[in-house]
Design a protein around this nucleic acid. Structure first.
Lengths: 332, 332
DNA sequence: CTGAAAGCGCTTACAG
DNA sequence: CTGAAAGCGCTTACAG
């Protein structure tokens, strides 16, 4: 009742295990094996219910056919709601290439990190959002193919990011073109992430470009602070750093009796649920989440295939403005 | 510039690789190794930057220290929004036990399934939502420890589920106690899942128990159908099968000028984002998501440790009613 | 066209 | 207290 091994298949089909391996893996040499031998071996394998032992294969071939998805908590809110769809993109590409995903949320314990990176359990990895401190050296040391997804770094690593500056500029442009002069950028309380600066940069650039530099206002504080700002500075539009904030802000404004978009326009980033289903539906910059996932997966596979010789690449994907009812011309 | 192996450590510290293995793994025999030898070996390993090769370890020890999370698309909507927090629970337990998660969303291709289950790449698995058809046999054949999470089956597999019947009964009771007589269960369009029947059962039982059997109404159709039903049957409360539906329904009602909760009370299941942040905030049955994840992970580890000898268990965890502003006494 | 042999880097009885 | 040896189940030059 033991699992059949390659030796069993060899015995039954009357060839050596070398030949079995060659045939079943369709390695180059298999082209020289006559069709009937191939058939015999395949039939034997089938009949025995033979499955190559993945562990042995990994050891012998030095490949695990596994790509790790790595992140350090806290997972940035930017990724969170979009995570499903980024993962979907990653998985689409990876499963087509016969790779699996190892999910490795790492704690603050440096030991864990060393282990995962250096113990050869994965062929490459996708790092979400931040290249935190033990990582750069570990990456260099292990020479493991890696792609940073939705993050920035000075280290020589491939990167796939949405175009945050451009997206933010587009959004600000949209609001200004509706007639808004006082547009506020509401960040809330966030762990550090490059996208905060980038979105802010796009926002400020456009406002300044329209001679509205005096109205630049970024709120890195809670909802109370925002409401206070609303009462004093009277912005007619607000861009929320995330849809989590935007959704909550709609509720806060509703409770305060402030109407959207009649009294204030509200816009945000990401088209994840429930951005389309809010009251009113939110105008947003859709992030190219599936694309990000797909590109990142392709890039890591490419690196794996080239033995990590390819120089790091940086891919920036455009965001898309989706206008809904939460933005309109300013009051008055 | 090659990675150091156990042999290198053995050479440097002047012992055999057996001894190195015993010490570094703290296996029973290590208690008989004198402290200074242990120290010498550890120092050597440290100095060399030795990391046991995971692939070799997996082959030799017949353990991968990996647990798979498996599901077949479509991922049921019940799990989706709660997925993050279920996974968080799973990961908490697993990482403490030094296990990793292999993420395996499987397509409809049976070949993939066979492979993942039979190729020894994981020590056990957590199956989300449904035990679909090739699985039961594969599980039996591979004798792989498995726990079904949020699903039902006749097959002998351990299960961890929220108490859907009870949760639904609690919710219905809440509405009836507010004075509602006409309470509708709005399912929408859903792929089959046991929770639909269970929630429905709890709902019907309570309504019947209050002599309101004639008002039982389950809508398994879209929002138009619901609105039509609303106009004709005039329910004063609706229980939505998922928060996805509830959130959208709030929007639909708002667009139709129907006020919540003044004209109709709206309740739902799951306390995932943005249930608390809607307009108005939603009354809901919170699912014990983290607990589910933790229990399931514990159970699969237990099975792995006992070699799968432990008989299948079924664990049912209570749901919790959270009352917010979307439910109130009926109009009039 | 096919196989014997070495090797991947560990673990684990077993012997002394 | 410690090591030699077999074994985990494959892959892959290499030889013929």
């Amino acid at each position: 009742m033991k699992r059949p091994t390659i030796m069993d298949v060899a015995r039954v089909s009357g060839v050596s295990k070398t030949t079995v391996s060659v045939i079943l893996n369709e390695s180059p040499a298999s082209s020289r094996v006559p069709a009937d031998t191939q058939q015999r071996v395949r039939t034997a394998a089938e009949t025995l219910g033979y499955r190559p032992n993945w562990r042995a294969k990994a050891l012998a071939s030095r490949r695990t056919h596994t790509v790790g998805i790595i992140y350090a908590p806290p997972m940035p809110i930017v990724i969170r709601g979009n995570y499903e769809s980024i993962t979907a993109g990653i998985n689409e590409v990876l499963s087509k290439a016969n790779y699996h995903i190892l999910f490795a949320p790492l704690g603050s314990n440096t030991g864990e990190w060393n282990k995962v990176f250096l113990d050869q359990r994965m062929d490459g990895c996708l790092i979400l959002s931040r290249l935190l401190d033990p990582m750069p050296e570990l990456l260099a040391q292990s020479r493991m193919p890696a792609v940073l997804v939705n993050g920035e770094t000075e280290h020589p690593v491939s990167i796939v990011n949405p175009d945050e500056v451009d997206g933010s500029a587009q959004m600000t442009e949209h609001l200004v073109s509706l007639g808004h002069r006082r547009v506020t950028f509401f960040v809330g309380h966030q762990p550090p992430h490059y996208s905060i600066q980038y979105r802010r940069a796009g926002y400020e650039r456009v406002l300044r470009g329209h001679g509205l530099g005096a109205n630049v206002a970024t709120i890195e504080a809670g909802f109370d602070a925002f409401m206070e700002h609303y009462r004093t500075a009277r912005p007619t539009a607000v861009i929320c750093y995330t849809h989590y904030i935007a959704v909550k802000l709609l509720q806060v404004l509703w409770e305060a009796g402030v109407r959207v978009p009649q009294d204030i326009s509200v816009a945000t980033y990401s088209n994840a649920f429930p951005v389309e289903d809010t009251i009113p539906p939110l105008t947003t910059m859709a992030l190219p989440t599936e694309q990000i996932g797909r590109r990142a997966a392709e890039m890591v596979l490419e690196q794996i295939d080239t033995g990590g010789k390819a120089p790091p690449k940086k891919v920036i994907l455009k965001e898309t403005l989706i206008v809904r009812k939460s933005t309109a011309a300013p009051p008055g």
